[in-house]
Nucleic acid binder design. Structure first.
Length: 321
DNA sequence: ACAATACCTCGTGT
DNA sequence: AACACGAGGTATT
């Protein structure tokens, strides 16, 4: 069982050693690894004086052995814990991971449901029971995904990294790598941001980011998107510059708890045309907004309430072939 | 509603 | 070595 965090899903993680993923989540720097059904983690503490983590004192560039394994042991969705009276730091950290990896969701049930409804899913992804959707921070998700259209993922990764370094608060420094929080919306809304991001190689996306941030700051509806229905959230996001159907659906799916949101990108469309002959849009030349809706409806009808998750799993399985 | 076009940048391929 | 190509779409016409 190997932990792997897809670079499209989140650009904040990188594999610093084999099977060990280091990144920022919830304002803290983590290193994660997995053995069997157990997720092991280490949280770096910010030093009082120099802003460097204590973890820095560990051997440079090697796997970080988690200390106090008995304390930091983290069991997945295997057993329920009793409600704590007072929340300890360890309990808080475990809850953050449980939330981020959505470990309360029983993937077995979902896989059975998808496989039963769709023989092709069963054939391609029936065994990929370990793949699950992250529950990302909406702000980080939105502004990262805005960078992806008409772009290469490798470049997006560098862009996001530079944006965090330039505009996010520093957290700690490990082995010459400084980790920063994702920039706040207000930091991204500043008038100087467009020029700054252009200097960092963002091209025309620099304006989208600054303008979207300014609009979010101005209108205030962004924070409430998790608690309103999918279609309302999607349409609200569509009003932001640089946010089309694909980006809106990605943000809905990956950060706003809209499990039914199905982002249609060029790869998904190829798969749909090849493997789902009864799907709409077979004679279509390109992905129009209507086709995006129709294909989404088709997959929601096929897979049910977690269609977006099913699509992500199927695509992940596709990549492994 | 759909098709055509430009778009920043920067690996890669020729 | 120079140059065209296109990338997990979007905005505009």
């Amino acid at each position: 069982m190997t932990l792997c965090i897809d670079t499209f899903s989140s650009h904040s993680w990188r594999e610093t050693a084999e099977g060990h993923w280091t990144g920022v989540m919830g304002g803290r720097v983590w290193t994660l690894t997995q053995t069997d059904d157990t997720l092991w983690y280490h949280v770096y503490q910010r030093s009082d004086r120099q802003g460097e983590a204590r973890g820095r004192k560990r051997r440079a560039g090697v796997p970080l052995q988690v200390e106090n394994k008995s304390k930091k042991r983290f069991k997945g969705a295997l057993k329920k814990e009793e409600e704590p009276v007072a929340v300890t730091p360890v309990q808080e950290e475990e809850e953050m991971l449980r939330d981020y990896f959505q470990l309360n969701v029983d993937m077995g049930d979902l896989y059975n449901k998808w496989g039963a409804a769709d023989p092709h899913f069963q054939h391609i992804a029936g065994n990929f029971t370990g793949v699950r959707m992250l529950r990302q921070d909406p702000t980080e998700c939105l502004f990262s995904i805005i960078c992806t259209p008409n772009n290469k993922l490798s470049r997006v990764h560098g862009m996001v990294e530079r944006m965090c370094q330039a505009l996010g608060d520093p957290l700690c420094k490990l082995d010459e790598t400084s980790y920063h929080n994702f920039p706040s919306v207000s930091a991204l809304a500043d008038n100087s941001v467009e020029a700054r991001l252009k200097d960092l190689g963002f091209g025309y996306r620099a304006r989208f980011i600054q303008q979207s941030a300014a609009k979010i700051l101005d209108t205030q509806w962004f924070e409430g998107l998790r608690s309103i229905p999918y279609l309302q959230a999607r349409d609200a996001l569509r009003a932001l510059p640089g946010v089309g159907p694909k980006v809106a659906n990605c943000v809905c799916l990956m950060s706003l708890d809209k499990t039914e949101a199905v982002p249609i990108d060029t790869h998904v469309w190829q798969i749909a045309k090849r493997d789902y002959s009864d799907a709409p849009g077979n004679g279509q030349k390109s992905i129009t907004e209507k086709l995006h809706r129709d294909l989404g409806d088709f997959f929601r009808n096929l897979w049910g309430s977690h269609a977006g998750w099913a699509q992500a799993v199927l695509f992940c399985a596709e990549l492994q072939r």
